Computed example of a mutant assay.
Amino acid sequence: MYKKIIVFEGIDGSGKTFHLNEVSKYLNKKKVRFVKFREPGGTINSEIIRNIILTNKSTFKKKTDLLLYLAARNENYENLIKPNINKKVILIDRFIDSTMAYQHYGFSINKNIINTLNNFVLGNLKPNFTFFHYVPIKYIKQNISGEKNKYDKFNKKFYKNVQDGFIKILKKKTNKLIIDSSKTKKYNVEIIKNKINKILNIHD
């Protein structure tokens, strides 16, 4: 069985976290060893940074947020990715594509700076596969759930720009699957499970 880094990407309310959790249940059932975490967040230190970034009281500038995201990622890389790579499947809720989509396409930070920082933290590390959860325009911002954070105040146009950014990023990748979030959860769970079986060589 291949040990892979599998990432779940998409704008807020796209269903990515739900499907990551469904995959983790499935891997447990199949007795596949894995580690999962979210970004920002993951380790204790990264969760502290997450709370600093996303609090509604935050007045940090966009460049400060970027540096905090990368600081949280470094903690995850050192404490979660490096110890488990080639030993366990690694499931990540948001990763480097989210940084580019939100910070560059959403907030217009120079993409070369973002790439340089990611390379500084991760070296040549890249995900093996990405599930991207696409939200049809009319549904953007309709399905955001959970505790509200400062990103919830951004308008529909912001999220459309971010999603368009994801699409531009993913055009260059072959190791991806686009999930239509307007389909039923049951339908998408089956599609993702079937792809997971192929990626990890699991026999159902």
Rank of each mutant, 00 (worst) to 15 (best):
I5S: 04
V7H: 00
S14I: 01
K16D: 00
N21K: 15
K25C: 12
Y26E: 06
N28T: 14
K29C: 09
K31S: 14
F34R: 09
F37T: 06
G41F: 02
G42F: 01
N51V: 07
I52F: 02
K57M: 09
T59C: 02
F60M: 12
K63A: 11
D65N: 10
L66Q: 02
A72Y: 00
E78S: 06
N79L: 09
L80G: 05
V89A: 05
I90S: 02
L91R: 03
S98G: 08
A101H: 01
Q103S: 11
H104A: 07
F107H: 12
K111T: 12
I114D: 08
N118M: 11
F120G: 10
F120I: 15
V121S: 11
G123C: 13
L125G: 07
P127S: 14
N128R: 06
H133F: 15
Y134A: 09
I137F: 10
Y139G: 08
Y139P: 00
Y139R: 06
I140T: 03
I140C: 06
K141Y: 04
K141N: 10
Y151P: 00
K157S: 12
K160H: 05
G165H: 04
I169V: 05
I169R: 02
L170Y: 09
L170F: 13
K171A: 11
K171T: 10
T174K: 13
K176Q: 08
S181T: 10
K183C: 15
K186H: 14
Y187A: 13
N188R: 07
V189W: 11
E190W: 11
E190I: 15
K193I: 15
K195W: 11
N197V: 12
K198I: 10
L200C: 12
I202S: 10
H203Q: 13
